[in-house]
Simulated scan of single mutants.
Amino acid sequence: MAVFTTITDDDARQLLADYDIGSLVSLRGITAGIENTNYFLNTTRGEYVLTIFEVLTHQQLPFYIELMHHLAQRGIPVPSPQTRRDGARIGTLHGKPSAIVSRLPGGYEPEPGIEHCRLIGATLARAHMASADFELSQPNLRGLAWWTHTVPSVLPFLTPDQSAMLQDELAHQQQLDASPAWQSLPLGPAHCDLFRDNVLFAGTNEDPHMGGIIDFYFAGCDRWLFDVAVAVNDWCIHRNNGQLKPELVQAWLQAYASVRPFTAAEREAWPHMLRAAALRFWISRLYDFYLPRPAQTLKPHDPRHFERVLQLRRSEVVPALP
């Protein structure tokens, strides 16, 4: 359940007075999500999503909100934050930060095929290119520094073999991160959480159309190849065992490269970046599973999935970048 703060119709009418997006038609809570309160907000001028931020503060939000605005202004299909009459895009509701964004069409595809992978691959590349001149900067808050800080807290819950693999992979990624080749990889604002349930498709399964990319609240500045690796590790696998589907990987990467060609350094780094992306989510799922926040209302994901993915990426030959 993602409605932690109850919003009434009168609350919505009062909030809408600060915008020029029409009068209230309907308000309905959204049950998806983990951290924020979300409502579908329909007005006489369009369909929107109202979000009340339960964890992020007014000081933390500008990077995410302004990145979405920046991308939307450049034609990337992302939720477009609405501007208030005072020029701001972040408001306050019940003492908490709030934002209204445009509602994108479609729904998420649990079993993406080749055409879905082509569409999102090209769209992510367009988003990376469009974000290159974004003026705000924030590191990926779930990047290497967080991994290094978090691993000691989850080690007591692991078997000796799990602990050995986790520490060995972390050391491998620390060594890579310090290398000149790694430092040369193209970087910029990245989504950092581009799982299949954060992308919407309209149309049909046989003839999908891009609806858009949602949920930017793990975004940060990171190497763009990391963004690609996170996505491929979720979009292009057999979900039961984490093995890559070569035909989906090829479609995803070729579509991305048709918009932003990969560099020689990225081709060299690719197998290691797939490991980095698996490590990131193994650590975060271990942390959420064994050390959940007291207020967490949803059952955490099973960390064993990304343990299996990491084991595979450390041992298999992965499809090369085009």
Rank of each mutant, 00 (worst) to 15 (best):
L15Y: 00
L16N: 09
I21F: 07
I21A: 09
G22S: 06
R28Q: 12
I30P: 00
I34H: 14
L41R: 13
R45H: 08
L50F: 08
L56Q: 13
T57M: 03
L61F: 11
F63H: 01
H70E: 05
G75C: 05
I76Y: 01
P79Q: 02
R84N: 00
I90K: 02
P105N: 09
E109N: 13
P110I: 06
P112C: 12
H116C: 09
C117L: 08
L119N: 08
L124P: 07
A125L: 10
H128R: 08
F134N: 10
W147G: 06
T148D: 07
H149I: 00
P160Q: 15
D168I: 04
E169Q: 14
A190H: 02
A190S: 15
A190F: 00
F195I: 08
H209T: 15
F216A: 12
F218R: 04
W224H: 15
W224F: 13
F226N: 04
D227P: 00
D234Q: 01
W235R: 03
H238A: 06
N241C: 12
V249D: 03
A255C: 04
S258H: 09
P261N: 08
A265T: 08
P271Y: 05
A276M: 03
A278W: 06
W282L: 13
L286T: 03
D288Y: 02
K299V: 15
P303W: 05
F306D: 01
E307M: 12
R313F: 13
R313P: 00
E316S: 12
E316P: 01
